[in-house]
Amino acid sequence: MQVRAAAIQMRSEPGDVSGNLDRALSHLSRCRDDGVELAVLPEMFNTGYCARGRYGPLAEDGSGPTIRALRHFSRRWGMAVAAGFVEHHAGHLYDSLAVLLPDGRLDVYRKRHLVFWECTRFRRGRDPLVVSTPWGRIGLAICADMIYRRVWRDYRGRIDLAIVSAAWPDFADRRSGRPHWLFGNLGPLSGEIPRLVSRDLGIPVVFANMCGETETTIPMMPRIVDRFAGRSSLCDGARGLPVRAGSEEAVVIASLSVPSSSPDRGASPCRSTSLSEPAGWSSTSAA
């Protein structure tokens, strides 16, 4: 089966939720004109990704302005949208990824592998999440999740397409271009891991990363004045060759071949909770 997918690589202004949402909607509108059926936005695209951000007041549940707007346009344009946001649930904050389907269904994945300053600001998610869609089963990951073997071990043989939403930094000084002595080799992995996963699992991978300037804050280390790595990509497991963005704002669009699900793969152990009504907002990767 073919699905026309888009990875939206955009910059986000920290704290400017309505401005970031407007910019994302204009990218989504472009995707709609191009016949896209599945569009992916970066991690925390609406709040911006910044160690100094105050996320409490910007966090949303299923009835927040970001999710409401995305749900509205997802229904209207008949397009599935995956978007990173800061979730507020039962007194806790999560670094989450919402998947909105054109039929109004909403599923939320919570980042399992928090890194650096995120550990002090968010609660970590516990479970992987598989979402059933008309194109097959989609597995979700957020940024640093994708560097951990167990994430892909959990999904192996149980998903037909993977989505990774990220705010992955370059870990290189943006003025001199010099890579950081410890983390410098992680930046280019943003372009490599989706390709490796796609080839390894034999499934398409949609990777949407943030772009623009940032300052990476690592505990007990000087701040790195760098930029987000960009390199958003669409990797087709069948064809192998990725379609990739550079480091600037871009929308990468391609048709991907989704392998049809075979019944002998067994039931997924991953929890998948549909949240069709905002009032029913509950945990999908409950801590």
């Binding site: 928090l114 890194v115 650096f116 300053w117 995120e118 550990c119 002090t120 970590r124 994708m146 560097i147 951990y148 073997r149 994430v151 892909w152 410890l182 983390f183 080799n185 992995l189 490599e192 891991i193 490796l196 996963v197 505990p219």
Partner: peptide, 23 residues
């Protein structure tokens, strides 16, 4: 890790465990 990171991987792993616990 999904990809080999060599000796740096060990530093990142231990650092990650400390950061997660403290965080």
């Amino acid at each position: 890790f999904y990809v080999p990171l060599g000796a740096r991987g060990l530093v990142l792993h231990v650092g990650g465990l400390i950061t997660r616990g403290f965080g």
